[in-house]
Design a protein around this nucleic acid. Sequence first.
DNA 1: AAAGCGCGCTAAGAACGCGTCAAGACAGGC
DNA 2: GCCTGTCTTGACGCGTTCTTAGCGCGCTTT
Lengths: 227, 227
Amino acid sequence: MTVVLVVDDDPAIRRTLAINLRARDYEVETAGDGRSALQAVDERMPDVILLDLGLPDLDGVTVLRRLRTFSQVPVIVVSARTGSDDKVEALDLGADDFVTKPFVIEELLARIRATTRRVGVEEPALRLDVDGLALDLGDSRAVRDGAEVHLTPTEWAIVEVLVKRRGKLVRQTELLHAVWGPAYDRQTNYLRVHLASIRRKLERDPAHPALFVTEPGMGYRFAPGVA
Amino acid sequence: MTVVLVVDDDPAIRRTLAINLRARDYEVETAGDGRSALQAVDERMPDVILLDLGLPDLDGVTVLRRLRTFSQVPVIVVSARTGSDDKVEALDLGADDFVTKPFVIEELLARIRATTRRVGVEEPALRLDVDGLALDLGDSRAVRDGAEVHLTPTEWAIVEVLVKRRGKLVRQTELLHAVWGPAYDRQTNYLRVHLASIRRKLERDPAHPALFVTEPGMGYRFAPGVA
DNA sequence: AAAGCGCGCTAAGAACGCGTCAAGACAGGC
DNA sequence: GCCTGTCTTGACGCGTTCTTAGCGCGCTTT
């Protein structure tokens, strides 16, 4: 699980970020000033830090400088300062990215993903862990109840499409088009056969699928957590 | 010397960036469209790419997608598109940063420094020692159970790609592209033959590979420690 | 109630992918 | 010019995966 440390003196921003991050399956730690931020880095070893520059005790720049004396953890500065001087300073002190307030949450999340990807941290977007099933699309690995399961290329192709749109209905023609190409729009029996083997490997009870659900007449849906 | 590839359809921007970068002792290569950009990556192996999204032939997003099928080189998107959707898309496709035009040159330079610094930090994975096998990518030396083993240039090229992405699946087309070039995408038999000799030299039991694992239909994976 | 449809399931043959071997091509060094 | 090491190319066998067809069940339609 990826741990994000949010450092900001404004409780409202801490809360907003925490909610959005937790909704994306990040684990969130918060700090309201520089000292507790540095302490939190020591204790929690976060995978990425969102750092505001305007802190009550230490300047954000100072926090960054001290941090870099003992840790290489990725830092994304989130600040109201828009001047390029501030950006240059922060980046040269070891920050990995610089986002100005007000920010669009989607963009910040994408920048977190980009940064963690570069550093090699596992992304929650590509990793997922529900109901005893662990899937890693980036690594192409699947683990059911602790045991590694082998999926064939076609099975992976189907699983990827469904998982990337988790919760949403994917029509049969869409799946066929994505996996086999436009010419196979009508080969719904392909799906029946391969979904059967996918369920046999990934479902807890293949006879009563809880994860890879059929919507009769429409398509399939990856519905985790809708127990 | 750090090589920067500047991809933009506007000659004025190419020139401006080239002048500024050369003044900072970067080596600069330029490209005005997507195809020549991808070609330049193959030929010059740049350390960082500045990529405009509005190109005359291929969309910048397409360039990025294709690029990521064979190279992990850092990409900073430099675009006039300011929408957060564009940013999210580019970042999730594998871009490392996103700068909007017009940009302050100092900030762009700082972002280049930040990106290259981050990539340089994780490099020292050049030596490794697992399961009786010692590899030194810098020296191109391999030692199996105390005895020095000789690898051919092609074998080294393959091993390097796999080891640098240890644990991750590397697709056959990626390997072929990285080792033989874009024209050899289909020559999967090259891989079969060379992987055989790599295993004969590096695996403890070449008949049952534990390190250089095949993922049928997908690619290969260097998976140390997954005993 | 019967017919039609869509889906899950199974099993078989066909097709594919991989590892292996061996022979030929090629280049560099002596 | 020959020798050595390397890379390419083709062929074969084996195991896996995909395709295809057929059957049964449950739901919807007529």
